[in-house]
Simulated scan of single mutants.
Amino acid sequence: MRYKNLFFDLDDTLWAFSTNAHDTFEEMYFKHGLDAYFDSFTHFYSLYQDRNAALWLEYGNGKITKEELNCQRFLHPLEAVGVGNSALAKQYSDDFFAVIPTKTKLMPHAKEVLDALAGRYNLYILSNGFRELQFQKMRSGGIHHYFKKVILSDDLGVMKPWPQIFNFALSATQSQLAESLMIGDSWEADMVGARGIGMHHAFYNVSGRSEFPFSPTYTLNDLKELIELL
């Protein structure tokens, strides 16, 4: 058996973050009456997503704190339509974070794949998500029991793709590099990071990406392909 240790990203690799987030945002949008300020939920969500992506890059590069990230990304859509109501943004944010980790949707075939692999490999989570959310997401999705250890950037203070978090994950799980595989949906965080330390990597191409700066060790269009690959 070539690999002994499988490191999984969580959001949009196993737990359906994009779907669960969209559902939660829409619930909070109507709960807090934001339809009074925006043309539609799509209008609000597009404003949020554009700014959120940029803020996560700044956070990953250490330019802003976690608190600044969460404050700015929820306030931005309101400010964009002339409603600089920081109290409303804070209330929306608090409710969003209370609800989203209770969502249960997983990526297609996630449990089937974990069931097939759990008895043959050491399974670990390696995620950039926040500690107060990730464990509850896993419990809500019914997948927490598959993993021997969960390594989070929030604990280490270093995010994927920086090599420190990958090296820490190997050390913390007593895993040999040559016997380890990273599986994730983020090219920039998971593939670039794993390749940076010489770890084999499987790109779960949920976005339908067609151009790659380098060839990943493996490409998955369906998570179920991992069973055959291994």
Rank of each mutant, 00 (worst) to 15 (best):
L6M: 03
L6P: 01
L6E: 00
F8W: 04
T13P: 01
W15Q: 06
T19L: 10
H22N: 12
T24G: 06
T24S: 08
F25A: 02
E26L: 09
E27I: 12
Y29F: 15
F30V: 13
K31Q: 14
H32R: 09
D35L: 13
Y37M: 06
D39A: 15
T42N: 12
L47F: 09
Y48L: 08
Y48C: 10
D50W: 01
R51S: 13
N52Y: 06
A53S: 15
A54C: 06
A54D: 11
L55D: 07
Y59V: 04
Y59A: 08
G62F: 02
K63T: 06
C71Y: 03
Q72R: 14
R73T: 05
H76T: 08
L78F: 12
V83M: 12
N85L: 00
S86P: 02
A87R: 07
K90D: 14
Y92V: 10
Y92R: 03
Y92W: 13
S93E: 13
A98P: 02
V99W: 03
P101A: 09
T102N: 09
L106N: 14
M107Y: 01
P108K: 09
P108R: 10
D115Q: 06
D115C: 00
A116V: 04
L117Q: 07
Y124K: 10
N128H: 10
Q134N: 10
F135S: 14
Q136T: 15
R139N: 14
H144W: 14
K149G: 11
V150T: 15
L152S: 01
D154K: 03
D155V: 08
D155I: 08
M159K: 04
Q164V: 09
I165N: 00
F166I: 06
N167H: 11
A169V: 09
Q174S: 13
Q174C: 05
S175R: 06
S175G: 08
A178T: 12
L181K: 04
L181E: 05
G184P: 01
E188K: 09
M191F: 01
V192E: 11
R195A: 14
G198H: 07
G198K: 06
N205Y: 02
V206Q: 02
R209F: 01
F214W: 03
F214P: 08
S215A: 15
T217R: 01
T217F: 00
L230V: 11
